[in-house]
Amino acid sequence: MKILFVSKELHPAAGSGVGARMHRDTLYELVGKENVFVIDLDLFIEPSIKQNYRSYGKYKNKFERIKRNLQMNTYYFSNSMINEIVGIVEKENIEFVFLDDSTFGKLANAIKKKCPRVRVVSFFHDVKAQLYPIWIKRSKFVDKIDFRIGIENERKSVFSVDKNIVLNSAEDKLLQQYYGVKADYYYPVCVGLPEDSAKNPYPKNEKKVILFVGTSYVANLNGIRWFYKNVFLKISNHFEFWVVGKGLDCMKREFPDNASFHAEGFVESLADYYRYADVVVAPLTGGGGMKIKTAEAISYGKVFVGSTESLHGYYEEMPKSIINKLIFQCDTVEDYLKAFSEIADREVEKQNNVLVELYKTKYSSAASYNIMKKIMEETMGKEI
C-alpha cells in the first residue's frame, strides 16, 4: 500500500512538530518508508524534490501570498501546488492520504474529486474554528484574512474527507459544536520513549526541584512570569525553579537576584533535567490541543502540576487514584500553593510507575502504532 502524508509541522522542535513526526514515523513503521510519500509544507524549508519527498518552501513575496488568498487558499498552498499534489496521488498510485492538519480542505476536496477511490483522513491538532477567532483578534490584517480562510478550509475538509480524527473527547465536542459532526477516531498526543540520562544536572541541595520545559514562546514566557511572581516566591524556601529550553535563558534578566531560580536555555539533553526533577510544572493559559510537554512529563513518570489548559485532554482520561497525588490541576494561586504544600511535605518519587504505565498505554509510540493501524484498516476495509 502506498500512502501520502501531508504536513506543515514536521520541523518545529516542540508542539505539533512532535505529533507530526510521530504520525509520519508510525506510517513508516506500518508500511515501510519506501511506501510513504511526504509533502512537506513548512515555510522555512528550502524547496526540494527527493525520492518520496517534496517540499515547496515559502511563497516568493507578498503578492504571491495575496494571490493564494484570492484563490481561497491559506499561504501554505497555491492552486498549482494542489494540482501537483493531486498529480502525485495519481502517478504514485496512492491509496491512503493522511492530512496532518484540519485546514487542508481544498486539497482534500481536489483529491476526492479526481481520485474518489483514494481514502483521505484529516487530523485535528486543534479545532481551528474555536482557536482562530482568538488569534484573529490579536493579529495583523493580512493574518486575519489567512485565519478566516483557514476556518473555511477546515469546514471544507470536515465534509470532504472519509474520516475526521481528533485528539480526545473534549476536541470531539468542539467538532460537534462548530460543525455538527462527530469525530471518527481519537488519536491523542504520543511521544517516543524517554531518553536515557547521563548525569544529574542539578547541584546538590535540600530543596526539591521544579522543572519547566519549553521554548521562548509568548504563552510560555507569560506562564513562567505568572508562576514565579504569584507562586514560586511563596514556596522558594522548599523548592528551586528551573526553566529549560531554547531561548528561555532570557528569563535570567528578569529574575537575576534569586539564587533558587535558574534559566538554562537550550540544553543538549532534556532527559537529564527530566530524570532528576521532582516536579514538572506547566502554568499555561493559552493555546489549543494537547500539550506535548504534558505527555513528556508523564513518560518520565513525573509528578505534574499544571493548569486546565496544560492538562486539556489528559485530565479527563486519568484514573482518579492519581488525581491530587501525582497529577494536580491548578488554575488559581490558591490551587498551586495547596498542591505544592502537599508535595513539600512528602517524599517524592523521581519515577512514578503508575504514570509510566499510563504513558505506555495511551501516549507512547506503541499506542500510536495501534491507533494508526486501526484507522487505516477500518478506513481501507482491509488488513495492513
Rank of each mutant, 00 (worst) to 15 (best):
V89P: 14
I82D: 02
G150Y: 00
A129I: 01
S299K: 09
I323T: 06
N79F: 07
G245L: 02
I323M: 12
I45Q: 00
E357A: 12
F261G: 00
N61A: 10
F227G: 11
Y186K: 02
K112Q: 09
D257N: 14
I343L: 15
P283D: 13
C330D: 13
A20R: 04
M72S: 07
K173M: 12
K113P: 10
F37C: 09
N352M: 00
R155A: 05
A108P: 14
L10V: 11
H23G: 11
K106C: 09
Y187S: 13
L174T: 04
E90G: 14
K207I: 03
V279A: 10
G150K: 01
H23M: 15
F77V: 11
Y186W: 07
S269W: 00
G17E: 10
L358S: 01
V356T: 10
D100R: 11
P116E: 01
M318P: 02
R24W: 13
E171T: 04
C330A: 15
V127F: 05
S157T: 15
K2C: 03
E95K: 15
I292E: 04
E64V: 02
S7P: 13
A271C: 10
S216V: 05
E240S: 11
Y186D: 02
K137M: 09
F255H: 08
D146I: 07
E264G: 01
G313Y: 10
Y336V: 08
V280L: 04
K58L: 12
S269P: 14
K293L: 11
T103P: 12
M376K: 08
I343A: 08
E152F: 02
S102D: 10
R346Q: 09
V18D: 06
V218Y: 03
H23D: 07
I235G: 04
N61K: 08
P201W: 09
V38Q: 00
V209W: 01
L284Y: 06
N230G: 01
N237V: 06
I343F: 05
L4H: 04
A366I: 11
N352V: 03
I134K: 14
I49A: 07
K382W: 10
V231I: 15
G57I: 10
N352K: 03
N73R: 07
K144D: 01
L131H: 03
K144R: 15
G265M: 05
A366P: 00
H23A: 15
F261T: 04
A108K: 06
F266I: 09
S216D: 15
G19N: 10
E64W: 06
P47N: 09
E268F: 04
I165N: 03
V267G: 04
Q176T: 13
Y202M: 03
R117P: 00
K156V: 05
L311H: 11
T361E: 15
E9W: 08
K360N: 12
P188C: 10
A14E: 12
F96L: 08
I3V: 15
N168G: 13
E206Y: 05
K50M: 09
N205H: 12
Q51I: 03
T294I: 04
K144N: 02
M1P: 13
K293C: 12
D272V: 10
K362F: 11
G150R: 01
K60F: 07
L27A: 14
V121F: 00
A277C: 14
G87D: 11
Y359L: 07
L27Q: 08
Y273Q: 02
N52S: 08
D184E: 11
L221Y: 05
V38G: 01
